[in-house]
Design a protein around this nucleic acid. Structure first.
Lengths: 90, 90
DNA sequence: TTAGTTTATCGTTCATAGGCGATGAACGAT
DNA sequence: ATCGTTCATCGCCTATGAACGATAAACTAA
């Protein structure tokens, strides 16, 4: 399956902020984590981080699973792989 | 040489618009071209395309050489390679 | 010199992004 | 049932983005 230019641009846009790049790098390293953990890493409020995570989720590069009061975030590996392929073939 | 997160985010941001993604794809295909050629491809005004090219240039992924009244744009291959490497190692 | 070509920039308008605090919703533990 | 925890969302504000037309700047050709 091929990504559309719009989907691609949406992922690029989601990664177009230093904090969101770092969040994704962090998620790749530790595989999965909750919002609060990310809030502790960055000098921004909980609402700001939650907003960043929402943008990443909407782009498709990150997914979140609600478990009780917590939400576990992780990188969508299939989407990441498609994204990597696109860049490779660019 | 390693790109900073800020530089990376700037490239991502520059690519965070469908038109700019298509411009970069086009530049990679035809190697180099002038602004007017790109204007003819897209349904946007000359000033809008010029602005998109400026954003791409400022991110570093594209460079432009002025020759007389024309400006020849092309993708900076070194930057593109660094960018590719980053994604690959992500 | 004048006219035409090509591109960049300016100023404007409307929409979206980025940050925050406050609040609400969902849940677990007491 | 109540309290504390965790996260999402709302409302607000300021800043930036996206598009346009108009104009300026740089050059070429007649």
């Amino acid at each position: 399956m091929q990504m559309t230019t719009e989907q691609l641009a949406k992922i690029f846009k989601a990664l177009g902020h230093p904090t969101r790049v770092k969040i994704v790098e962090h998620l790749i390293h530790i595989n999965t984590c909750v919002c609060g953990e990310i809030v502790n890493i960055f000098p921004f409020s909980q609402s700001t981080i939650s907003q960043h995570l929402k943008i990443l989720k909407e782009s498709g590069i990150v997914c979140g699973e609600v478990e009780g009061p917590k939400t576990y975030f992780c990188v969508d590996k299939a989407v990441l792989e498609e994204f990597r392929e696109y860049i490779k073939n660019l």
